[in-house]
Amino acid sequence: MKKHLVLYIVLLFSVSGLWAQTDSVNVIQESTNKEITLDASWSTALPMGQMTDEVKTTSGRGVQFGISQNVNNRLSFGGNFAWQMFYEKNYEIYIDENSVFSGWQRNYINAFSIMANTKYYFSNSVNNIKAYLSLEIGASIIENYQVVGLYEFKELEWHFAITPVLGLEIPATNYLGFQVYIKYPNSFKSKSSFHYSWINTGIGMYVKIPE
């Protein structure tokens, strides 16, 4: 757990450091061309906070899709869809005042989110690599499914969700490129559920379609 956290932090600082060391490099050519960007990525996730009471294992099952349109060369608006799945199997022992229950427990958490987002691109770039900060606001529906022996428990709740994002766009051609990002999705406490949060890292591709 700690090892993963350190890796995420190192990656986070690498990304922000890359953006910070851009004094002597090219400035993105000012452009007001409108374009639509479609992106798809594979994401991994490390559970954080209260969620670690349910699962602690890093998830490698996740995909995200996005669509956005730029307002100018600094700002874009759009939306995205994400799915992340967490899974853990443990032998659990539950102790109550006068009773004890034990068995193999499987925990499945499937999180689907639909978010609106805005991206702010920093002005400096290295070899046209663009760093951006983004904020996503929307809703997530999270299914928390536990199976212990022949018993099962299922919780399905909508949550209000906010996700800060730090990312990089690495162009390969004028219209195609790669993206990497770190996200911190937060699905806030709902009526009968708790606050889910995790750290996402993702790698994917984007395509820009000029209008």
Partner: peptide, 20 residues
């Protein structure tokens, strides 16, 4: 992909409950 490893072996279906 939502439910990996969902097939359960008979041994893994065992639960033990005790009460005092």
């Amino acid at each position: 992909g939502c439910y990996p490893d969902s097939s359960i072996s008979p041994a893994e279906s065992d639960t033990v409950y005790t009460y005092r």
